[in-house]
């Protein structure tokens, strides 16, 4: 496959993207506008993440792509295949072996390490968007650190539901400055954002924004002192396959009589644990 440049994008576009990424790293949590390109997959299907990954990839990289925590969901397969084809890089399903991980909606359970890059696909980068539809307004609110409104939303949740009713895309504050949307990861994953040794990059293609969390950045989930943030998941369940108690679980309906089971959403984590258990048994 040689009709396209390495990793699909031309070098001038990659330079533009890298400048935006560097700026994003320099101002953690700030949304840097960039001039996105049309990609050969639809907007909303990970074009932002794909562009960020393309700008970061070098031929020596090993790429892992997950969607909903799994390497084998359709869109993850499609994106992994795309890069294998246009960049010829090695791919893997093992979190520990990957140098770049592109993800949609999850952070892997296996802790990331220094030198790894985690690229998030972001649908709506603006954490204030559902309170205020206008970009001109939200930009001003960020610039002036005018964040009363989002706290009002948390107050309203607490008044109505007795807790902050946000299950995913739970807003965080970065280094005490910018409020940031961590992309639609479940709030279970929020603590992994904090002080992570890996570089975390966020790409929103349709909305033309890149933002970043450099390694070891302070990331706090918004809350109240008397209603502190909790990283919740399915209550009292363990993975039916590997028995994990500490991982995020997907619920699977197994019959039409209300039967269901819970399994790890991170398929690599689950498989690794199963392999280790088999080894122990043998």
């Amino acid at each position: 496959m040689s009709d396209y440049n390495f990793a699909y994008l031309d070098e001038a576009t990659k330079r533009m993207l890298r400048r935006a990424i560097l700026k994003a790293v320099a101002i953690p949590g700030y949304q840097v506008p960039f001039s996105r390109r049309e990609m050969p997959m639809p907007y909303g299907w990970g074009t932002g993440g794909v562009q960020v990954t393309a700008a970061c990839l070098v031929p020596e990289d090993t790429l892992k792509v997950i969607d909903q925590g799994a390497d084998d969901t359709t869109n993850a397969v499609s994106i992994r295949k795309f890069f294998a084809r246009v960049a010829g890089i090695a791919t893997t399903e093992a979190t520990a072996e990957a140098t770049i991980i592109q993800t949609r909606h999850r952070i892997p359970e296996t802790p990331l390490t220094e030198g790894q890059i985690l690229v998030f696909q972001v649908p709506i980068p603006e954490p204030l968007r559902f309170l205020e539809p206008r970009e001109t307004e939200t930009r001003t609110m960020h610039a002036l650190e005018d964040y009363g409104l989002i706290q009002v939303r948390l107050y309203e949740d607490t008044a109505r539901h007795g807790e902050i009713a946000r299950a995913y895309a739970y807003p965080v504050r970065v280094e005490g400055r910018y409020i940031m949307d961590p992309s639609p990861i479940p709030k279970f994953d929020n603590p992994k954002l904090h002080n992570a040794p890996a570089l975390q990059l966020f790409g929103a293609g349709r909305e033309c924004r890149i933002y970043a969390l450099p390694p070891f950045t302070r990331v706090e989930s918004l809350d109240f002192e008397d209603y502190p943030f909790t990283a919740s998941k399915a209550a009292g369940q363990t993975c039916a396959i590997c028995g994990a108690e500490d991982s995020y679980l997907d619920e699977v309906i197994i019959d039409d009589a209300g039967g269901r089971m819970f399994v790890c959403s991170d398929t690599d984590y689950c498989a690794t644990r199963c392999a280790a258990q088999a080894e122990d048994a043998a």
Binding site: Q68, R104, R106, A167, F188, K233, L249, D250, S265
Partner: peptide, 9 residues
Amino acid sequence: LPHYVDFQA
């Protein structure tokens, strides 16, 4: 696209 994780939450 799959939204299992968010839906689970």
